[in-house]
Design a protein around this nucleic acid. Sequence first.
DNA 1: CCGCTCATGTAACAGGTTACATGATTTA
DNA 2: TAAATCATGTAACCTGTTACATGAGCGG
Lengths: 189, 189
Amino acid sequence: MALRHAVLAALLDEELSGYQLTKAFDVGVANFWHAQPQQLYAELTRLEKDGLVEGRAVVQETRPTKRLFHVTHAGLAELEEFTAASTKPSFIRDDLLVKVQAADHVDTEALIAQLTERAAFAQAKIDLFGKLLRTMRGDRTEEEFLRHGHRIGPYLTCLRGLTFEQGNRDWCEHTITVLRERQQAHARH
Amino acid sequence: MALRHAVLAALLDEELSGYQLTKAFDVGVANFWHAQPQQLYAELTRLEKDGLVEGRAVVQETRPTKRLFHVTHAGLAELEEFTAASTKPSFIRDDLLVKVQAADHVDTEALIAQLTERAAFAQAKIDLFGKLLRTMRGDRTEEEFLRHGHRIGPYLTCLRGLTFEQGNRDWCEHTITVLRERQQAHARH
DNA sequence: CCGCTCATGTAACAGGTTACATGATTTA
DNA sequence: TAAATCATGTAACCTGTTACATGAGCGG
């Protein structure tokens, strides 16, 4: 039951509609959690029923009416409780690692293609996170911002997202190099 | 349906029993995938039914009879197909990041406690992965091993596990430092 | 006029977690 | 003698994914 808390955490700093939430939790961003639109709409319904968030309808002229949600006192208490409770470790679960685990038994070219694709995806996220960080800290240095800024939570999680994707990219590139070298050694033989 | 392929990948290099598989996929190791024992036993049953693995009973004197599984030709073909297919990106989904996202609104001490715990967990995994890597490469250097060793797949995935946990540890420590400094700045005021 | 964005859902299914169950042997 | 290890499962439940559905306005 952590999607619940992820949604609460996302709504702490600003009122958002279900649709805006789906943008924050989608493929491109998702710097601290990932979820499908369907999950989010369902979770918002549940959260409102449980009194942890409240929505207010905002009628728009050209767009459909949307509902902006904010966290209630009960919601904040729930998050506080969640934070104090012990955290279960998170595990790697990645198709690409499974493929590399089988590297000695499957087609090298196919593997390299997958690794190349992933490296590019990681690079795109690195660029995106870099931009987000710059926007959040404004004209301050990172050190300055982390010392005195308010709302450093999103900045800190984004930093983890950034280094995670840098790790992905570097590992993909390294793995490609290793596989290519072995390919050449094998070809010469 | 990637647990399926994770199990196949794990059985490529050695015959393992269900129980031995659970050890490879459990909390301590899980360098390329994580799964519960119950999932693994269920998956093995399905894989055998589908002809992708075969088991042979090994009667033991003091221990219960176990079944050692190995991948069939059909199983290898399945893995080959899986490798060639496009890989969906993997996403972070971590309770701890949710807690840090809410950092500006929840109790700092509770957060620091969680971060400290996670840093220790990450360090334990770093030590474990370091040992595993040394065992796999024997007395060769890493470069030497990656160039000429056979079975580099598990080594490469373990390398990713290692840097992932180093990233976790470093980020936890950095985050703790930031939170502590802000705490002090706030206390002085 | 075609596809994208805004805006919100339902339903079916696949995948993962937790609780429960059994029973012998070895180690502390 | 209590706990851990070996060895294997079933059942109920919770979570996440995929497919489907609707409809208006905006940009190329």
